[in-house]
């Protein structure tokens, strides 16, 4: 949620810079919109978690082994998804920059298409690919490479695959935007000054795309933290993320006070990570 805020906020800020004066009035609907849809529910959630008048729910959330473990699991998976997305998205974004317009359009289309498909459909698609009678196993079986189907589904790897598939575009687009702004002369300058390709990349190109890396990573990470459907379906119930537990407390156990506390814990955790990203981004921006 906070990721969306920051994007809207940033767009708004850009507009403020461009349009100067009249923008305060223009941004008012956004502010009201955010207040109603974001600030009020968060405050309500917080009040709910303190309804008992004590910190008991927070004490439980932060001391009970179950919730600490799940929170750490969630963090670990979010981190892995972010790292994997980065390694896949970076070359892809670079390809989109250097490719011929035709290929760039094809690439963009392939990236955007998943946005028009529901997460549920995409998740089921992975089940059809990775299942015991899925495409991969059938192909390997018919080629005689394996005798019995491999267990590719219902483990952490399949959850990671599904989440990376859904979230990678959020990494590609900020990278693409930043890469487009990198002056090609700088790379030529680096080569001309004696840098071999890889050193020019590491010392010049990569640092200059760092703002995009951080923006993409914070988006992917924050969205990962709240992921629900993909881990439930592709994890076979074995991969527990915090959102799954929150849902359980809200709809099954009706313990809204504790659900509120868990949500606040997730929100706080996410905000802490986000502010770290933001600080890094700020120092990057000072350089760039």
């Amino acid at each position: 949620m906070s990721a969306h805020i920051s994007l809207i906020d940033r767009l708004r800020r850009n507009r403020v810079i461009r349009e100067h004066g009249g923008s305060v009035a223009l941004s008012l609907p956004t502010v009201i919109f955010l207040l109603i849809l974001f600030a009020v529910p968060v405050v309500q959630l917080m009040l709910l978690s303190f309804q008992s008048g004590t910190f008991e729910h927070y004490e439980k959330a932060f001391t009970d082994e179950l919730y600490v473990t799940v929170l750490l699991n969630t963090f670990e998976i979010a981190l892995l998804v972010t790292v994997i997305s980065f390694f896949l998205a970076y070359p892809l974004a670079y390809f989109l920059i250097v490719a011929q317009p035709l290929w760039r359009n094809i690439g963009m289309f392939c990236l955007l298409m998943p946005f028009w498909t529901s997460i549920l459909v995409r998740t089921y698609a992975w089940m059809a690919i990775l299942g015991r009678r899925g495409i991969i196993n059938e192909a390997l079986l018919s080629l005689g490479i394996i005798d019995a189907p491999l267990s590719l589904l219902y483990n952490t790897s399949s959850v990671l695959i599904g989440m990376v598939h859904v979230l990678m575009p959020y990494m590609v687009f900020p990278l693409y935007a930043v890469m487009r702004r990198v002056d090609p002369n700088l790379m030529q300058a680096a080569y001309g000054l004696g840098a071999p390709n890889w050193r020019a990349f590491l010392r010049v190109y990569f640092p200059m795309t760092m703002p995009g890396v951080l923006a993409g990573a914070s988006l992917v990470f924050i969205l990962s933290m709240g992921f629900f459907i993909t881990p439930v379906l592709l994890g076979g119930g074995r991969v527990t993320m915090i959102a799954v537990l929150i849902e359980q407390f809200v709809t099954e156990l009706l313990d809204w006070e504790f659900a509120g506390a868990l949500s606040m814990a997730l929100l706080t955790f996410t905000l802490v990570v986000y502010s770290i990203f933001k600080r890094l981004m700020k120092s990057e921006r000072n350089l760039a």
Partner: peptide, 20 residues
């Protein structure tokens, strides 16, 4: 020969200073 091995100093149109 690749540019990196030519030992040629170059001043670019927009200086191409590394901003970071």
């Amino acid at each position: 020969l690749p540019p990196a091995k030519r030992d040629i100093g170059m001043v670019f149109q927009n200086y191409a200073l590394f901003p970071h």
